[in-house]
Structures are given as structure tokens and as C-alpha cells.
Design a protein around this nucleic acid. Structure first.
Lengths: 342, 342
DNA sequence: GCACGCCGTGGAATCGATTACATCGACGTG
DNA sequence: CACGTCGATGTAATCGATTCCACGGCGTGC
């Protein structure tokens, strides 16, 4: 591959001049500029980003560590992040933690080794020493979706409490009284928060949330299946299951179907995170939708602000309830179940 | 951040010795080794991958340019790729082309600028000059899923022809005679191949594939919707629609539902690419499943072989038909619709 | 007892860029 | 006419690693 030296030789100038042309420094003669540009084209020269990064101490790269690539929510998030980053002149390296703290650490470590300019994380746990050290050491960092309490890092996320209240009101209105939840890992903020929001919303209607109705999941489909089976085996099974993410809802659907039961007649179902497929499942699933795109963009903006020396603020956006048929009593108009209403 | 010089100073040795310890070169005294290791720990030193790459001319990084991150098929593929790469000591940078040639080029360019060791591509088009140049210039490269004919690059993909024959036989057996296809872009191999396989399979049953029954899609949901509406507006609409990927099938489902029609009674549906959600859609969708995981792993192995100087061979794995209810006549046993059978 | 070889080590070149500093010529001004 | 200024350019230091080469010391074989 041609280097800046080859270009300099070809154009009959020094490497300094070539570099000046490439970074359009003002003090270059028109003549030199055209000769350099011609040489660049002739050799098909492209600057070596590795060398440039070493010298300038910036990679114009963001690291994004997400909890699970197979989760459509995070995929959408990743897409929005990449788009906004590209618009701001940054690339993104995605690390998939698969909800495993060790994998998360692996990715944070290699991203740090590559000297990415900033890190976007949706932590799978309470925070490893590695990540906390990095935050303390001043690596620009922003938490997205989930966060680690007590760490001084901006957080970009959705607040689902109002939507959970709406959901519970909806369920209550349909006559449901025994409501259960498939929770995410307690070590994640979204894991514990959603349970608390659910509990609070139930309390507002004078309903309890017994321990037997709190199933411990891990945000993966398999745990949703397992927990749902546990619920169905209870002497007094719940009437509704609220899954704290879309994959566990999928697992719940698996469990219900495996028993030959029907949603919502035998068991109603609702989920946190709305995805396109929920419109076409049998039945369409009532869900709480996050403004995923905006979250991704806001997170990148906050991170780039930090990187470039500006404050970089936390952002909280509201989630909202999308009613479909998985909890019973179809909505008034048929189109109301379609996502396009939103 | 501490550099190798700091470590050398702390340990009272030269940078050469530190480097030797870090790369466990044999010729280092036990004493020096322990002092260096202690210094490394004390300073929390981590080698700068950027500097290392500049010197060694290898980044231990693979580039993966996929056609669409929002497509679960590619997400699964990306996951498998990352996993296998990690096992072999490589990281992966994913570029999402969103089925846009310009974006694809953008990613190939930045990946090349970053001097990735090898490139994994599932091309969205017939191949830009940029990519062809890179291949010719000797950048280790492997095509996955889709490929560009006439370029000397190994291809790792699934052969769906047998599965498409099975599908058509299945449809024929159910009494369907008017079969239509929502094709992918003709510029992609998977786009044109699937149409050809479908046409050939129809011919074997003496069935035609009229032009009106070939809808031009672009592998995105919206095009599936649009094409399906076109089919439904035909004076003699097809009895079955075969979508060449899962997103267009989703779009087809949207279109059918928007008209208040039912699958499979009013229109039967089948798709290329099987995904978890197809089990739970209304109705469960008959699909052709690719061995996505194995494809991803095989692709990485072929690429790493190339990078490390070994041959690196093309691989073709068979796809297979998974019958569900979206074409009519439910399969004999209820469990046969479940993915766990596979 | 001497020479050779090997081991451990450090000095310095190198990778490909950016950039501070020096140089040189042209031009304007007093 | 001399001097200061400014624009264009080149030389060389630098980023943080790896690695070739040289060197000193010690063990071994003859």
C-alpha cells in the first residue's frame, strides 16, 4: 500500500506538504496542491488511519457495548447509534456482551486497548472494576438504556413508569387482578426498575405483587419460557404476565403454546420493548414502546459532546403504551393495533 | 495512559526488555520478567494496540459488511462471526450497509483505512470498483451469503435450491397452482438465484412463472408490502406468495392484514430465511432455514486461513424447508411446527 | 587457558502519519 | 535600499510499540 512518502516522491514535494494538502492547511501553493492531488489519485493513496491515530491520539471511533445483538431492541439502538455517529464523523465498533459480564469486560478491554475516543455502554451488571476504573480515569463514557448507579457518567434512557401505569390501568380495566412479572436481572437498572414501576402501579389499584408472581429472568427468551412454566404450575396461576423485555415475551409465548393454551384467554401477555413482529404474532402483543432511535442519537450526541470537551448531558425520554390484543378485549378500531398509528 | 516507557522506567529495564516480556520472548531473565510484570500491574499498563498495529502491520481485526442489521438473519450471522473470530483471537468491526451501495462503499473504505486484516462481505450490489480493487490488490476477503460472480474470492453460502424444490412440491401437494415470488434485487446473487430456483422448481411441475407473478423487492419490509398489494390487485391474484427474505415476508403480512384478508385462506405465504418469530406469527410461517451459525463460522475460518497464508476455501451448505401453517394444511403433528424439531 | 557461542540486555531504527521550527525568497514600507 | 513580514516549503522530532544488531559476561570444550 502506498504511503505518504510515495506520494511525496511522486509529486516532488516533502511529506509535510502532502500532509498539509490532505488536511487542507491554508499555506500550500496552488501548484503544489494540484501536484499532490494528482499523485494521490495516481497511486490510489489512502491515509493510514492507524498511523494517524497514533500521532494525533484520536481514533474518531466510538465503542458501543450492547447487552445482546439478537435482541431487536438493541439492534435498532445500534443502528441509530451508528447513523448519528457517522453523521458526526465517527465510526462505531460494536461489542456484543450476550448478557455476560465476562464478555462485556472483554469488549471494554479491547475497545480501550484500541484507544477508542469514547464508550457507549448498556451494562449487563452492576459494573466491573475495569469499567469503573475507565470512567474514573476519564475515558469519555455514556450509559444508554441501562446504567450503573453512583457513577458519574451521563445516562440516556427511557422512563417507562408512566407507560407501566397506563398498562396496569389497562389490565385492571379489563378485569385482571392477578398480575405477574418476568423480571430482568436485579443487577441491571432496567431489571429492577421495571419491577418497581410495576409494583407501584399495582399498589395504586390496591393490588399486591406476591413474590410468587415475580419470576427471575435474564432478558433471554429461554428464561421467559422457564419462568412462565413456573407461573402456570402455580396452584393459583396469574391471569397476566408482563415480560420485562421482548425476548422473554417470546419465551413466554413458547411456554404457553407448548401447553396448548391460548393468549389471552388462558393467560394474557404484555411486554416491555415494542418490536415490529409484535403486530403479527398470535395474538398481537401489547407492549411498551421506547423511542429507540432518539435514544441512540441522543446518546451519541452526549458522548461526542464529552469527547470534544462540552458538558454532555443525561437525557430521559418517555416510553408509551401500545395496546394490542394479547391482554384481551381488542381495541375499538382495527387499525389501532397497527404500529403505524404511533 | 502509561506507555511502555513508563513501565521500563518503573522496572529499571529498557523498553526492549519490556516488549520481550509482554510478547513472551524466551530470552528474558526470570528476575527481569518479574520486575516488568510488577511494574505493569502497578501502573495498570495496557499495550497501545494502535502503536502495535502500526509497527507489526496487523490489526487482528476483521471487517464485516452486512446488508442490513435490522434483518435478524444478518444479526445471527454477525453474532456467529464475532464468536468464531474471538475464538481465533480476532475482533470484528461491523458495517451496516442498509442495502445501500453507497453506504457499503463507505464502510469498505473506512475499514480499509483502518487496515483491518481481512474483509467479510455480503455485497448489496454487483460490486463497486472500490471493492473489486481491494480484492485484486490482495486484501484477504471472503464473501458470505451473497457474492459477486467473476471475482476470485472464496464464497461461503447456503444452497437453497433443494429446499426451494421441496417447498414447491409442498405447495403443489396442497393444491396451489398460481405461485408468485417477491424477489430481491437482481444485482444480488441471492436476489436472482432464488427466483431461478423457484422458476426451475415450478417448471418441474409444469407450472409457469409469469412476469406478473415476479415482484421486484429490495429485501426490505416496505417493498414486500408494496409488491404484495400489487399481487392482490391483479385480475387473477396468486394463491401463494414466496418472499425471498424474512423482512419482505413481514411486509407481505402487513399488506394482507391491511386488507382484512387471512393467511393462508386468502393468500398463502412462505419465506426464505427462518427466524424465531415465524413460530409465533399468525399463522406460523413456512420458511427455508439456513444454517446461519455454521455459515458465519465457516466464513471466518476461510478468511483467517487466507490472512494467515493458508488457502481458504469456499463452502456451500444446504438450506432446508421448515413447514408450518402459512400455506394451508397444518402438518401432521402439532410439535412439527416448532423450531425445536430442527 | 583461550576461543567460541550463547544468553540477557540495551540502543536505535522503523512503521506512517502530524506538526513545531527553520529557512528562503518575494514584497511592501519608511 | 535595508529591514521586517509573510507565505511556501523542507527537516526532523514525535506518537508507542517491535525487532535487528551489538555488546558484555559467562560457561564449555579442546
Amino acid at each position: 500500500m502506498a504511503s505518504i512518502k510515495d506520494v511525496a516522491a511522486e509529486a516532488g514535494v516533502s511529506v509535510a506538504t502532502v500532509s498539509r494538502v490532505l488536511n487542507d492547511h491554508p499555506s500550500v501553493s496552488e501548484d503544489a496542491r494540484t501536484r499532490v492531488l494528482a499523485a494521490v489519485r495516481a497511486l490510489g493513496y489512502r491515509p493510514n488511519a492507524v498511523a494517524r491515530s497514533l500521532r494525533t491520539d484520536q481514533t474518531r471511533t466510538l465503542g458501543l457495548v450492547i447487552s445482546d445483538v439478537l435482541n431487536p431492541y438493541f439492534t435498532e439502538l445500534a443502528r441509530a447509534v451508528e447513523e448519528e455517529a457517522r453523521a458526526l464523523g465517527y465510526s462505531v465498533i460494536i461489542g456484543n456482551a450476550d448478557e455476560r459480564p465476562d464478555l462485556q469486560d472483554h469488549h471494554v478491554r479491547t475497545l480501550l486497548d484500541r484507544r477508542i475516543d469514547g464508550l457507549l455502554v448498556s451494562p449487563t451488571d452492576g459494573g466491573s472494576p475495569l469499567m469503573l476504573d475507565a470512567a474514573r480515569a476519564g475515558t469519555p463514557m455514556v450509559f444508554v438504556d441501562r446504567w450503573i448507579p453512583g457513577v458519574d457518567v451521563p445516562v440516556v434512557r427511557a422512563d417507562g413508569r408512566a407507560a407501566v401505569r397506563d398498562l396496569v390501568a389497562h389490565l385492571y380495566g379489563l378485569g385482571h387482578r392477578r398480575l405477574a412479572i418476568i423480571a430482568g436481572p436485579a443487577a441491571t437498572t432496567t431489571g429492577s426498575e421495571r419491577v418497581e414501576a410495576f409494583r407501584a402501579a399495582l399498589a395504586a389499584h390496591g393490588l399486591p405483587l406476591p413474590d410468587a408472581y415475580i419470576g427471575q429472568g435474564d432478558f433471554q427468551a429461554e428464561s421467559g419460557r422457564r419462568v412462565t412454566e413456573g407461573f402456570l404450575d402455580l396452584p393459583e396461576p396469574p391471569e397476566v404476565v408482563f415480560a420485562a423485555d421482548n425476548l422473554m415475551a417470546l419465551g413466554a409465548l413458547d411456554a404457553v403454546r407448548a401447553r396448548g393454551l391460548r393468549v389471552p384467554d388462558d393467560l394474557a401477555l404484555a411486554a416491555f420493548d415494542d418490536i415490529r413482529w409484535f403486530v403479527h404474532t398470535d395474538p398481537p402483543v401489547t407492549a411498551i414502546a421506547q423511542p429507540t432511535d432518539e435514544l441512540g442519537r441522543a446518546a451519541v450526541r452526549a458522548l461526542v459532546d464529552r469527547i470534544e470537551g462540552r458538558p454532555g448531558e443525561s437525557v430521559t425520554l418517555p416510553a408509551r403504551l401500545v395496546v394490542r390484543r394479547s391482554c384481551g378485549a381488542p381495541p375499538a378500531t382495527p387499525t389501532a393495533t397497527n404500529r403505524s398509528q404511533s
